[in-house]
Design a protein around this nucleic acid. Structure first.
Lengths: 204, 204
DNA sequence: GACCATTTCAAACAACTGTTTTAACTATGC
DNA sequence: GCATAGTTAAAACAGTTGTTTGAAATGGTC
């Protein structure tokens, strides 16, 4: 395993566990078993390291999201009927939760994503928002078509509720308990439970 | 206005805007217009300052929550029918959103609370969890009665979805945009929209 | 083996962190 | 008017932060 990979793997876990700001370069390089200056040499800065981690996992996920959302949009243009809330939300949510299955490293990344929604740190927030906003807009447009009797402002709020619920599922894990209610187990069934919750909640 | 009050007011806004870790003592005392050492003199430490802010707003809100939840629990014991999802969730949510109306300072505190759910910083998390867990357990018990055909694990997840949605409403404000979808406005109608979303989402 | 670019390493850097110290100030009670 | 307790002030504290430096080591190519 290359130094670069070792750093990314270690940083991902530490960022997920303790957040970006709280994680020090020394903690990262120590866990990775490399020299302190290796991060600046290979990535340039701590922030660039986070960006690299983000892009590695985020890009393939987002491509699938855009593809599926485009397909739904196209279908609704060809057929006379608008898209359903469920197919719109599924196109967005399901690719995201591939993170649950994508090996050990993805398992940590999903926590970073789950937290990004209410992240106070401007560095993290900007990296995240810049990547998620375009696809959010696509999703919102589809939802407006799916809920023709609902104002765009109300759709925006409902979408935000949905993203909040989704965020909790992404950060949801058994240990360490960030906010562990004591009864949940992360399994594939949870994604369907989440989608069911959101679809019912959004209904006009 | 006393030095203590000046500090709490300034810190609350800064904690809400930039998070606990990122906000420095110098930023707080500078904004409050007091000497740097005043925080340690009046509160003991930065962490104790956060605790003081938390307790000031949290205590009255939580008392009302517990009162209302107890009333619902008692009523469901006397009458033959179980509580509804809506009255359980309303008892929990509505007192929280008094923060929206409780003047300028409360307006900042609600952001701190909204973020706490996915907070990576252990200091903040522990302060928050220690205070919110007991009432969450009360709420969960009521919800299990309201959804007798649903397993406790599933109720736990649904409650977590609900808290995630609620978190987004608490942090929801027009500026600065932490995660601003562009269309929302925070008004009293949002709370009803949120409750409607959650109640429908939870339905068996 | 000599040359080269690439990578690693230990050490130091300046800037910033929360906290402590010690002296100065302010008001109150007698 | 003076002692006293409470509060404020400037300065320094020790520790940590991300980053930079310049030398040492490494690995491939001729």
């Amino acid at each position: 395993m290359t130094t670069k990979t070792k750093i990314m793997k270690a940083a991902e876990e530490l960022f997920a566990h303790g957040g970006f700001h709280h994680t020090t370069m020394r903690a990262i390089t120590s866990k990775a078993g490399v020299n302190l200056s290796a991060v600046n040499y290979h990535f340039g800065s701590k922030e660039a390291l986070l960006t690299a981690i983000f892009d590695m996992h985020w890009t393939p996920i987002n491509e699938e999201r855009v593809q599926r959302l485009s397909r739904v949009a196209k279908k609704s243009q060809e057929e006379p009927q608008p898209p359903t809330i469920e197919e719109a939300m599924r196109s967005f949510i399901e690719p995201t939760f591939a993170l649950f299955q994508s090996g050990a490293s993805g398992g940590y990344f999903r926590i970073i994503v789950g937290r990004a929604l209410s992240e106070p740190d401007q560095t993290v927030r900007e990296i995240f928002l810049h990547r998620v906003m375009p696809v959010i807009e696509m999703l919102k447009d589809l939802l407006c078509q799916a809920m023709p009797r609902t104002s765009r402002a109300e759709v925006s709020w409902k979408l935000r509720f949905a993203l909040g619920a989704m965020s909790q599922t992404l950060t949801g894990h058994n240990q360490p308990p960030l906010f562990y209610l004591g009864e949940e187990k992360v399994s594939s069934g949870v994604v369907d439970l989440l989608i069911g919750f959101i679809v019912k909640g959004m209904q006009e």
